[in-house]
């Protein structure tokens, strides 16, 4: 029943190459997924600005268009304003906890250095160990990096807060029950004459195509994220054969093989969206011309657009808050490890100090 516990052990160079390869893969996936999500945001933004699909659903002029009702339900189902308010309230505490761990870690280094310097001043050359200041440089550099990261996080918190402040009113409205939502949206003259008109049908068809393109993106994202591969064998082989690893060449070759087809599908998807959005904008112009807008209709449309945007903002803010919460929690784990490193080294220095003091007293 022998299992080789050193099976996964590889030469240092292979380990480093694997780490870099992993970074490259993460970057590529991040870029691909990023462009997919960007395309969806763009698409949602364009539709909201055109008041689609609400405008072609809204033929009574006073009931809540179906798509807006669906958006309302979606937001309510995800916890509405309360859930994001709670997460926003928690952020400063999470930040503070992280700050405290970092401050505490650097403080114990500072305190030990102070004592070490006092003893060096007292005993001069006889206190012949490396000064704490020199020894702690790497840890302090790490600490400075952490401060940097926390500063960036604080800025991110601000962005989220501002997004929330900008949109919370409309999000609150979107979360209201249907009857309240209905009364809050200005009425307009019904556009019944447009029902069944050619341009409405064309728009409907185009919107359905766009939906399919969006669904393709969701599937693509899942597939892209599911790709796994292991460069270990390739790197070990290269090292054995050449005595060196051309990591960049090997990794980019493998990434092309694994992700090439996906990259093309993403490009194709983005182009399809570009095309259909252009078509939708043209159709919408026709539609708007037919609609005979007046002040009432324009007011109604403005509110519907804002409600659609509020849904998109809610999704974005929720995502930001999940990211922020995870960030602070992950950082806490990392900072606790850092704190351990600091207390370990300080403990060793204290022990060494006691021994040195004993020697000096004896001599």
């Amino acid at each position: 029943k022998f299992t080789d516990i050193f099976e996964k052990m590889v030469p240092m160079l292979v380990q480093q190459s694997l780490s870099i390869a992993s970074s490259r893969k993460a970057d590529l996936v991040s870029r691909l997924v990023g462009s997919l999500r960007e395309a969806t945001n763009l698409c949602n933004g364009v539709l909201a600005s055109l008041n689609l699909p609400a405008a072609i659903e809204d033929l009574s002029g006073d009931s809540v268009p179906q798509s807006i009702l669906e958006k309302s339900r979606a937001v309510i189902q995800q916890g509405g304003l309360n859930s994001i308010e709670q997460l926003i309230k928690d952020l400063p505490e999470l930040l503070q906890r992280n700050r405290e761990i970092l401050d505490e870690s650097l403080k114990i280094l500072n305190d030990e250095e102070t004592t070490d310097n006092e003893l060096r001043a007292k005993f001069n050359q006889r206190w012949n160990r490396t000064p704490s200041g020199d020894l702690y440089k790497p840890l302090r550099a790490e600490g400075a990096n952490f401060r940097n990261i926390l500063d960036k996080a604080v800025q991110a918190d601000q962005v989220v807060k501002e997004r929330y402040n900008t949109h919370c009113e409309m999000i609150a409205l979107l979360c209201k029950p249907e009857s309240e939502l209905c009364s809050a949206i200005p009425s307009a003259n019904p556009a019944k004459t447009l029902q069944g008109s050619e341009v409405v049908n064309v728009l409907k068809a185009q919107l359905m195509q766009l939906d399919e393109i969006k669904r393709d993106r969701e599937a693509l994202e899942v597939e892209v994220k599911a790709v796994t591969f292991d460069m270990t064998t390739k790197f070990l082989t290269a090292l054995a054969q050449d005595g060196a690893i051309n990591e960049e060449a090997l990794t980019t070759g493998e990434l092309d093989t694994r992700y090439g087809a996906y990259t093309q599908r993403v490009q194709k998807n983005l182009r399809s969206q570009e095309d259909i959005l252009a078509q939708i904008q043209t159709s919408h112009q026709e539609f708007a011309a037919l609609k005979q807008s007046n002040a009432d209709a324009n007011n109604r449309e403005e509110v519907l657009k804002k409600l659609a945007s509020a849904h998109d903002s809610y999704i974005e803010i929720s995502s930001n808050l999940r990211e922020g919460t995870k960030f602070y929690n992950d950082l806490t784990e990392i900072l606790l490890k850092f704190q351990n490193k600091c207390s370990d080294i300080v403990f060793a220095r204290k022990t060494e100090r006691e021994e040195l003091l004993k020697e000096l007293q004896q001599s």
Partner: peptide
């Protein structure tokens, strides 16, 4: 993404 990446920091560095 809005927040800084912690990926680099998660990798355990070899302690000398």
């Amino acid at each position: 993404s809005l927040y800084p990446s912690l990926e680099d920091l998660k990798v355990d560095k070899v302690m000398r």
